[in-house]
Design a protein around this nucleic acid. Sequence first.
DNA 1: TTGATATGCAAGTGCACACTTGCATATAGT
DNA 2: ACTATATGCAAGTGTGCACTTGCATATCAA
Lengths: 101, 101
Amino acid sequence: MFRALDDETRRLVLDELAARDGQSLFEICSSLAMHHGVTLTRQAISQHLATLEAAGLIATERRGRTKFHYFTPGPLREITRRWPPDDDGTSRDPGEANRKE
Amino acid sequence: MFRALDDETRRLVLDELAARDGQSLFEICSSLAMHHGVTLTRQAISQHLATLEAAGLIATERRGRTKFHYFTPGPLREITRRWPPDDDGTSRDPGEANRKE
DNA sequence: TTGATATGCAAGTGCACACTTGCATATAGT
DNA sequence: ACTATATGCAAGTGTGCACTTGCATATCAA
C-alpha cells in the first residue's frame, strides 16, 4: 500500500478517479495527459492500475470489453490509524513546531 | 514524503519514536533490534533518519555529541487532505465492497 | 593529550521497479 | 466471417535506492 502511493503517476490516478469515478483504462490515460501532462503508454498505466488494485486502493468492474476503475480510499485510513495526529489536547497550533521544507 | 513512508524500516522508526520520543541514533538502533528484530548497521539507520527528516516526518535536536529525534506527524495530514474519506453514500458501483485481503 | 563515545560522509554492490516493445486475447459492430 | 476496439501477458532495459564498508569528525572524561 505504501509502495503503491510512492509514485506520482499513481497518485495522479487516484486524483483522477477521486474527481471522476468509474473511468476506463483509456479514459484514465487521456485524463492524465489532459490534466497533468502525463504521456505514458497505455501499458504503463495498466501496470500502475494493477499495483493500485493490489494495494486495495482501487476496485475494478469488468463490463463487456471495458474495465471500469473505482477509487476505494479505505486502506488510506490505516495511515492515520497507525500514526494518529499528535493531539495533546491543546488547540491546534498553526505555528507547528517545525518550519522546514 | 510518500517515498519516505515506502520502507518498513522507516515506518518502524516512526512507530518507535511515536512510542518513545526523543531517542538518539543508538537508542533507535537497539529499540528496532529489540522490538522488531531489525539488525541493520548504524549507518543504515542513520540514512533512514536523514530520509525521514528530509520528508519532514521527524525533527532533530543536537545536544552535545548526541542527536535526539522527534516524530513530527504533520506531513501525514497531507494524505487525508488530498484524499478525504469518501463519506458520501452515493457510490454508483454495486458490489463495490472490499472483498479481497 | 589520549581514549572512548556518538555521529557524519563517501563510494561500491545488488536488487527492485517504472517504462517500453511486441504479441496475444476478448468483445462489439458490420 | 472480418475489422476495430479495449485490455492482458511477457521479456528487456535503465535507473534509483537500501545496505554495507571504510574513514573522518566532534564531544566528553581521564
